[in-house]
Design a protein around this nucleic acid. Structure first.
Length: 307
DNA sequence: CTTACGGCCTGGGTGC
DNA sequence: TGCACCCAGGCCGTAA
């Protein structure tokens, strides 16, 4: 389940492997996760990948016009590489998306839905069993509008901005952390991990947090994301980076996925509850529930734990 | 307006 | 071997 650290890891990998390559042709398989499949076929061939950026959980492959002698000569005196008029390929990996270059001769893996033939003979392939991901070619105002929908980057937002942001909403803190319009890039894993580190229960309301708690959460979130990036993300189910390597951060999880295991701080058993519609893992002692939070019996889920 | 919630998409894993 | 079910994250419609 790629979140900010995993997407950052993949983006860095692609930067190493495909930056500057030109897309020769586009081959599409299933396209129900692509906004406008025809737009990819129409606009991508001939374009050069001039940058790979991460925006929340999205990757942006910036596409420049090819530098043909004519376009170079007739260029309106210097818009650089046509970047200002060129668009981007947005890629969201959903839960099971993979994107990486392969030798073109290599047999297609199952669930390969998009192939971009590159000018060095390799193929950039998008593989996604569940197709919960998304792909779109956008340029100009449509691209700007799309990006404008997103909230602050948790690695960039300042402490006091974060405090204002969080305390300005009544929704549960877990919901706020997951809301891409508030903060971009945080998913279930890093929401739970940062709340555990900050000793804040996921069901607390944003507006109910003290400024001090919000500051602590900001610090916890940033520290965790940065460390997770260093460790190339968390490989829970099948996340692999662009080189096919798993991340290491799952070894550092303190809450996520640890139902019934001991809290690393106090030894109490980590619990799971549905908060903001998501499985949420927390320590019932370190992260005291707000008054009235229903201590619902955790819906039975057949996951035998060894004693 | 904001927030809460249920349903939908898909297929791998699991339990029987 | 089969097969029904659960669950993941994002999004959307609806209700309060």
């Amino acid at each position: 389940m790629p979140e900010l650290p995993e997407v950052e890891t993949v983006a860095r990998g692609l930067r190493q492997s495909i930056l500057g390559r030109r897309i020769v042709s586009v081959t599409l398989g299933k396209t129900d996760f692509i906004d406008d499949p025809a737009a990819l076929e129409q606009h991508l061939p001939g374009r050069r990948i001039s940058a790979v950026e991460r925006y929340g959980k999205f990757m942006l492959l910036r596409l420049a016009q090819p530098e043909t002698p004519e376009s170079f000569a007739s260029n309106e005196g210097g818009t650089k590489n046509g970047d200002s008029v060129s668009g981007s390929l947005l890629v969201h990996l959903g839960m099971t998306g993979h994107i990486a270059p392969f030798p073109a001769a290599r047999p297609l893996e199952k669930h390969t839905h998009v192939c971009f033939l590159l000018d060095d003979g390799r193929e950039l392939r998008y593989i996604d069993a569940r197709r919960f991901g998304r792909m779109a070619y956008l340029e100009g105002p449509a691209l700007e509008e799309e990006l404008q929908e997103f909230g602050a980057d948790p690695l960039v937002v300042t402490r006091e901005e974060f405090v204002t942001l969080i305390r300005g909403h009544r929704a549960r803190i877990k919901a706020l952390l997951l809301d891409q319009g508030v903060l971009r890039g945080v998913g279930n894993i890093y929401a739970d991990e940062s709340l555990w580190k900050a000793k804040i229960h996921p069901a607390r309301l944003g507006a109910q947090l003290t400024a001090e708690q919000a500051r602590t959460l900001h610090r916890a979130l940033r520290d965790i994301l940065e460390k997770a990036i260093v460790l190339r993300g968390s490989s829970i189910s099948d996340f692999l980076d662009a080189e096919g390597e798993p991340g290491e951060y799952q070894r550092h999880h303190r809450a996520y996925g640890r139902e019934g295991k001991r809290c690393y701080r106090c030894g109490k058993l980590i619990r799971r509850a549905i908060v903001a519609g998501r499985s949420s893992y927390f320590c019932p002692r370190c992260q005291p529930a707000p008054r009235g939070f229903p201590m619902l019996p955790v819906p039975q889920r057949g996951k035998p734990r060894k004693a």
